[in-house]
Measured scan of single mutants.
Amino acid sequence: GPGLTDLFKTEKAAVKKMAKAIMADPSKADDVYQKWADKGYTLTQLSDFLKSKTRGKYDRVYNGYMTYR
Rank of each mutant, 00 (worst) to 15 (best):
Asp38Tyr: 08
Leu46Trp: 01
Asp38His: 09
Leu46Phe: 03
Thr67Tyr: 13
Asp25His: 05
Asp38Asn: 11
Leu50Tyr: 01
Ser47Pro: 02
Lys39Leu: 12
Val61Gln: 01
Ser52Arg: 04
Val32Gly: 03
Tyr65Val: 00
Tyr58Phe: 06
Leu4Thr: 11
Tyr62Lys: 13
Arg69Asp: 03
Tyr33Gln: 00
Phe8Asn: 07
Gly1Cys: 15
Trp36Phe: 03
Leu7Trp: 14
Met66Pro: 01
Pro26Thr: 05
Gly56Val: 03
Pro2Ser: 14
Asp25Val: 03
Gly40Asn: 06
Leu46Arg: 00
Glu11Cys: 06
Gly1Asp: 11
Ala14Val: 11
Asp59Trp: 14
Lys57Asp: 05
Met23Thr: 03
Tyr41Lys: 01
Arg55Lys: 15
Leu4Ser: 13
Lys28Asn: 10
Ser52Leu: 03
Ala13Phe: 07
Ser27Tyr: 04
Met66Gly: 05
Tyr68Thr: 02
Arg60Trp: 09
Gly1Ser: 10
Met18Cys: 10
Gln34Ser: 10
Ala14Ser: 09
Gly64Thr: 02
Ala21Lys: 06
Ala14Arg: 11
Lys35Val: 13
Phe49Met: 11
Arg60Asn: 11
Ala24Lys: 13
Ala19Thr: 02
Thr44Cys: 14
Lys16Tyr: 04
Phe8Asp: 08
Lys57Thr: 04
Gly56Glu: 04
Leu4Asp: 15
Gly40Thr: 02
Gly64Ala: 05
Tyr41Arg: 01
Ser27Pro: 03
Gly64Tyr: 02
Tyr58His: 03
Ala24Asp: 12
Ser52Lys: 03
Ala19Gly: 02
Gly1Glu: 09
Ala14Met: 14
Ala19Ile: 03
Tyr68Met: 03
Lys16Met: 08
Leu4Phe: 13
Pro2Gln: 13
Val32Cys: 06
Met23Ile: 11
Thr67Asn: 14
Thr10His: 10
Lys53Arg: 08
Gly1Thr: 13
Asp38Arg: 09
Asn63Arg: 14
Lys39Tyr: 09
Ala14Trp: 13
Lys53Glu: 13
Asp25Met: 04
Asp59Cys: 10
Ala21Phe: 07
Gly40Asp: 04
Trp36Lys: 01
Pro2Met: 08
Pro2Asp: 12
Met23Asn: 04
Lys39Phe: 07
Asp25Phe: 04
Ala37His: 14
Tyr65Met: 02
Asp30Ser: 12
Ala21Trp: 08
Tyr68Val: 02
Phe8Met: 10
Arg60Thr: 12
Lys28Ile: 15
